[in-house]
Design a protein around this nucleic acid. Structure first.
Length: 290
DNA sequence: ACAGTTGGGTCCGTTACGTCA
DNA sequence: TGTGACGTAACGGACCCAACT
């Protein structure tokens, strides 16, 4: 079980989606990530990941991007029915990138990208509305299958970081011959898929926890019955050594702290609403035979 | 300093399309 | 050939946050 989680590099999150979304502190996180998994490569999609290296990608990011460019240039030649040839306007835009909040951001933003009318001066927007579907004047969306190569590049990119800043979105889009919006959507959907998988893993994990707890409960009940039987057996009861550290509260049937020794405790007597000192119990471990 | 506005980002639920058995 | 299931690209809306007024 843990092996699965480790293999997947997952962090287990038990949370209530709405609450966690608004208040990450409200979610219970069991971090099952192996230590070697870096935060940038983790799939912790249940928490909002801040835009990594927002306006200023690290040199390693740039190196990665360059590596990508070299790596992908060759096989992208054969791409794709979905491909739009990069326009001069796009090239200009990319050259003009200065910060996420600059022109690029507004261009890559969903509304500006989707909703603004096609503009002769704006290459991005010109190419952003569908590839051929809008040319015929229809508004119906045509779903375009990404090629294997495109998916592979996107996948690689996602492995490095599951969110994109505008700069990288544009670069990736240009490299793949896609619209930035398409890249953005792909990352959104990819995060959703990752989260879904994580949820399935969580469910499985919780199921097993529940089974373990049920088993443990059954075992404790049985043990309790045995203890009761022993208590009712007089000769054994007489031979029994007095309890050393733990006693059983006869009324609430819980393992309680030893009898009070101080005068104050004696005066207070046994209180049922006081927390009992319970035996240490690890619900995640499999039940062991005694 | 603080409240309101704005723009951009993400997530979520849903729809619609492409593929395959 | 038709069809239902499934995967996933694409969409709209809600919400959050930072920058700006």
């Amino acid at each position: 079980m843990m092996v699965e989680n480790q293999d997947l590099g997952l962090s287990l999150s038990l949370n209530f989606p709405a609450a966690a979304e608004r208040n990450p502190a409200a979610s219970l996180q069991l971090n099952l990530m192996p230590a070697l998994v870096s935060s940038s490569s983790s799939f912790n999609v249940l928490h909002r990941t801040p835009n990594w290296s927002d306006s200023c990608p690290s040199s390693s990011d740039r190196n990665n991007a360059d590596a990508f460019r070299v790596e992908t240039r060759s096989f992208l030649k054969g791409i794709d029915v979905n491909r739009i040839p990069p326009t001069a306007a796009e090239a200009e835009e990319e050259a003009g990138v200065s910060s996420p909040n600059s022109t690029i951001s507004s261009i890559s933003g969903k509304r500006s990208e989707r909703d603004l009318p096609v503009n002769e001066h704006d290459g991005e927007r010109t190419s952003s509305r569908g590839l051929s579907d809008d040319e015929d004047g229809e508004n119906c969306r045509k779903k375009l299958r990404l090629s294997k190569d495109q998916s592979a590049v996107l996948e690689e990119s996602f492995k490095e970081h599951n969110t994109l800043n505008p700069k990288q979105k544009l670069a990736l889009a240009k490299r793949l011959g896609l619209r930035p919006r398409q890249v953005e959507v792909w990352f959104q959907n990819r995060r959703a898929r990752t989260k879904l998988k994580q949820t399935e893993v969580d469910c499985e994990f919780l199921k097993r926890c529940c089974e373990n707890l049920t088993e443990e409960n059954r075992r404790l009940q049985k043990e309790l019955q045995e203890l009761r039987a022993l208590k009712l057996s007089p000769q054994f009861y007489m031979q029994m050594a007095p309890p050393t550290t733990l006693t059983m509260c006869p009324s609430c049937e819980r393992v309680a702290a030893p009898p009070p020794s101080s005068a104050m405790d004696k005066a207070a007597g046994h209180q049922h609403n006081r927390p009992h000192r319970m035996l240490p119990f690890n619900p995640w471990s499999t039940p062991t035979a005694h």
